[in-house]
Design a protein around this nucleic acid. Structure first.
Lengths: 222, 222
DNA sequence: ATCTCATCCAAACGATTGTTCGACACGCGT
DNA sequence: ACGCGTGTCGAACAATCGTTTGGATGAGAT
């Protein structure tokens, strides 16, 4: 698995462990390799070689390869969920507890799409999370069940914003919007780029969010 | 890989072609296991055990594990492309060469969603194709480039149906619709089912197609 | 100084991987 | 009967996998 991606110089801060630079190196290398090549295709040796540490570091610091994967997933997942929850909360505050559909959808769409911005340093995390949805281990799929409770807040907000719609209609449309979000992968962007012969540029996250919001809001306006 | 999935009734009993039956057995077993567990998690021994044939059968009939995967992918991919192209062609005939947006989108959405119908026997093929999009080998990703030429017919039709829209807008919305389609995975349906607490039922393919069409058409109506 | 503890390292472990090999069985045309 | 080709089979191949091991290292506390 050859990769020529610049390594992230920033290490994590404020951890209970004082002297664990190796752990952060492994964490970042693993996330990057997993995001690019997938879980099964990346070996522990690939990770440690990329991180420049000893082979046994993975098992020493994380217990196992799956546990390492799970830890990355949980970290990034809670980060994303918090960003979404914060935006939804702000929307509630701004609109007196009953935000419109577009504000709710924005809280759902904007955070992950902003992560995918090529100008930022969170693209890898975004790709990792998208990939983990389809290739995760059994434990990660169980961790995705708790994601349901997180999604329910968005569903409830939408049910209030559109009380005239039958609830099942709301849920289906959430499913469609999530499909739009999870389709923002490197390979899909590439395919779109060749299909449009270079017309579509994904380097503007704000414009993409607007486009997705227009599309999704129209689907919810029925 | 523990699999407790009932074997399909087709081609299991005494076939007139006794000697070529093994290849079909391997083909079907591999497609089913790949669709359920993913490509990397399924070993050649899993496939041959599921098919009830000798371990060497895969390499003898297909050359390698990757070649087997590629052959399944090519078969199902051309089948799907043909079904879509036929529907698009019929739409052209019905509307004098200038079909409306909804008819074009229907040709894009209906075939794969019909495959996903639990009452049919093509759910496995649909899941396989969806999964191959994210976990495919390098050769398969190259085969997906030719899929672009297939998508271009839909893009051209939409450009004609909406000449007032800037082309890049058309391409982005195609990207969104494809995201809706590719999100129809087992795991995602399950998550939606638990989120809606049983309200959403995916057993009605026709109703799901209508829902997706309504949503997508609204997004294109802007 | 000695003990302690966390960390790192090279080496090896057993298991599993995809693939290959040689032998054997059968149908079929000559 | 023979040879030939196709197909199947058990066995083994080398490679890679995740994980474990025992000892070296070095800083901090006693």
């Amino acid at each position: 698995m050859n990769t020529a991606i610049p390594l992230d110089p920033e290490a994590e801060a404020d951890d209970p462990e004082v002297h664990a630079a190796t752990k952060a190196l492994v964490f970042n290398a693993a996330e990057r390799l997993f995001a690019v090549h997938g879980f099964q295709k990346v070996s522990v040796r690939d990770i440690t070689a990329e991180a420049g540490v000893n082979l046994a570091s993975v098992n020493y610091h994380f217990g196992s390869k799956d546990a390492l994967l799970l830890e990355i997933f949980r970290r990034r997942s809670t980060e994303l969920n918090r960003a979404r929850a914060r935006m939804l909360h702000e929307a509630h505050d701004r609109h007196g507890g009953k935000p419109p559909v577009r504000a709710i959808l924005e809280a759902l769409i904007a955070p992950p799409v902003r992560w995918s911005d090529p100008r930022g340093d969170r693209r890898i995390s975004a790709q990792f999370l998208i990939r983990s949805r389809g290739e995760g281990t059994d434990e990660m799929r169980e961790a995705l069940r708790s994601d349901v409770s997180h999604l329910r807040r968005f569903a409830d907000a939408l049910l209030i914003a559109r009380p005239d719609l039958p609830p099942e209609e709301i849920y289906w449309r959430i499913h469609f919007v999530l499909g739009m979000i999870h389709n923002n992968r490197f390979a899909e962007f590439d395919r779109l780029h060749t299909l449009s012969e270079g017309l579509t540029r994904e380097d503007d996250a704000a414009a993409l969010i607007e486009r997705m919001l227009d599309f999704a809001e129209a689907g919810f306006a029925l």
